[in-house]
């Protein structure tokens, strides 16, 4: 009981103390102490910057994630179900997945200009692949007896999709979404660093260029917090969507 509360809080706290001690004796201005960063955090992000930089970044991130899930699941389901489509597209998908998404930014800039759409497109173009490929695998692995049951009871195409194919693939889809989320966060930052006049990534690059070191660190801290928040929201949704899946695992273990 004590360990449950102490352990997760303990190590970060210890690191903070070590950091604080190390920085008080150091004169290196690139490594400010935690107190300085915390001050900078309050001054920098709580205020107009929250509306000008943080909110636009987060809304682009949210739109990008939702679009990546929609496109990935829809295309993945179609490819997983249609054999010739799968054989046709497999080499191409492998290629697109292998291309590091940030190199798409210059192309997206040329095609779409420096716009919100460009940034969302970049996020989607990176985050969609793990979701799509996992969905394809999940859809293909539908159990043969479950499919035969659907055939024997003459379920309609729509019912098969809604009550068999998608739920059966949902554990794999969620694995893909989890991977897609971290890619999306990375691309949100990078898309703003290239050419932009607002956003979290832009702010951090700006602080760095102008030697506002504590402010720069506070931006990194904020990004980390966004990542943690994203993971927490995902965990909540996952536990709800995959309740049956975790339930079966628990039954098999017990």
């Amino acid at each position: 009981m004590r360990a449950r509360l102490l352990y997760p809080v303990g190590l970060p706290f210890l690191l903070l103390v070590v950091w604080a001690l190390a920085t008080t004796s150091s004169t290196n201005r690139f490594f400010p102490g935690p107190a300085a960063i915390l001050d900078a955090f309050g001054e920098t992000w709580i205020g107009p910057a929250f509306v000008d930089d943080v909110l636009p970044s987060l809304s682009r991130l949210a739109i990008g994630i939702v679009a990546a899930i929609a496109v990935g699941v829809a295309a993945g389901t179609l490819i997983g179900l249609v054999r010739w489509l799968r054989e046709l597209s497999e080499p191409l998908l492998e290629f697109f997945r292998a291309v590091p998404p940030p190199v798409l930014i210059p192309i997206a800039m040329l095609l779409l200009g420096i716009t919100d759409t460009m940034k969302v497109v970049v996020i989607v173009s990176g985050a969609v692949w793990p979701i799509l490929l996992n969905t394809v695998d999940g859809v293909r692995a539908t159990d043969s007896v479950q499919s035969e049951t659907a055939a024997a009871f003459r379920l309609t195409r729509w019912e098969r999709l809604r009550f068999l194919v998608l739920p059966a693939a949902s554990p794999r889809i969620m694995t893909g979404v989890r991977q897609g989320l971290s890619v999306a966060l990375i691309l949100m930052v990078i898309s703003e660093m290239f050419a932009s006049s607002a956003g979290l990534g832009y702010r951090i690059a700006y602080f760095q260029r102008n030697y506002l070191v504590a402010e720069m660190w506070s931006g990194i801290l904020l990004l980390g917090l966004v990542g943690v928040l994203l993971a927490a929201v995902f965990g909540l949704v996952e536990r709800r969507v995959l309740r049956w899946y975790h339930g079966i695992k628990e039954v098999n273990r017990g």
């Binding site: 159990d143 043969s144 007896v145 479950q146 035969e148 049951t149 009550f163 068999l164 739920p167 059966a168 949902s170 049956w244 899946y245 339930g247 079966i248």
Partner: peptide
Amino acid sequence: EYGRSLYPW
């Protein structure tokens, strides 16, 4: 195979 014929979700 009742375990595979019923839908666990």
